[in-house]
Computed example of a mutant assay.
Amino acid sequence: MVDNRYATALVIACVLSIIATVYLSVAVGTQHWYQYISPPVYGEANASELRALQEEFIDGEFDEKTYSDSLFRLNGTVGLWWRCLQVPTETHWYKEPDPKMVMECVSFTLAQQFTPKYKEPGNHNSGEDMIRTYLWRCQFLLPLVSLGLVVLAGIIGFCACLCHSLAPTLGIGVLHLLAALCTLATVCCYLAGMDLLHRVSVLPDRVDASLGWSLYLALISSPLHMMAAALLVWAARSHSQNYYRMTAYRVA
């Protein structure tokens, strides 16, 4: 028999876990982790240059410098799996004061996720930048590990419900705590990687950079998983202590 306090804690923990998992899943699948705001372009010469950047971004070979320059100058957004540009729908968009813009996105392939980063982006002779390379790989792998831990915790919890047992609750709480730490580490790796990128790739004049809502969703999911972990651990420990006291009382 489960005390009402423990049952309430378990229900709240499940709700927090579901919300956090949804937030993290949306964050991983969207591209608004980091965004750039570029100044408007006037003049045919600059427009031709930006059109060439756009075509290289969409159809060219994968190169960090090429797609970074396009992101900087064409109001780009970048996430864990996607990079996007805001491109005009009209041919002579540079002559209009407020042209209609659409989002054009390209996904990072699995091979591109493991492509080395270089000390000078675009220059393969400059040597591999190990820190940026492993920060990028960690920011790709850690959220998948986090989601995997939550799925594993959910499977264990479902089996525990079928068996009417609270014994695995402590382990489920630990899995949620590890998932929260992996998510937090993902955000830290991403921010550190972007900071290092901006140090070796200087932003053009009048280009502003800011954090996007996808990153904030991932950041919010971490404390939600931590709260769920705390409730699960508390319910497991308190129920265990209460069970041992009742057993000792009955023996006495």
Rank of each mutant, 00 (worst) to 15 (best):
Q35A: 00
A248Y: 07
M227K: 09
F108H: 01
A248F: 03
V174S: 11
P168S: 04
A248H: 03
A180E: 01
A9H: 02
C161P: 06
A252K: 11
D59N: 13
A9D: 02
A209G: 06
E104L: 09
Y67K: 01
L147E: 10
V207N: 08
S214E: 00
S70W: 10
I19W: 03
L181F: 12
Y190T: 02
Q54Y: 06
P204A: 01
I131T: 13
L211G: 03
Y134C: 11
V251E: 14
E49C: 12
L135E: 15
H225R: 10
A27E: 02
G212P: 06
L196A: 14
G154K: 12
L74A: 04
D129A: 03
L166A: 08
N125F: 03
L196H: 11
R245E: 07
S68D: 09
S38H: 01
L74N: 05
G79T: 08
L142A: 04
S17N: 11
A179Q: 09
V26M: 10
D63M: 10
Y190F: 11
H176I: 05
A160G: 06
S214H: 01
A167G: 07
C182P: 12
R137I: 13
L166W: 00
W93H: 07
L177C: 03
C189S: 15
M101Q: 08
G193Q: 08
G76Q: 03
A179R: 12
V251T: 13
A230Y: 05
T186Q: 03
M227V: 13
L147R: 08
D98N: 09
N125P: 00
T169C: 07
P99H: 00
Y42P: 00
Q54L: 02
L149C: 15
P143L: 01
Y23F: 13
Q139G: 01
I37C: 00
S48T: 12
Q35M: 00
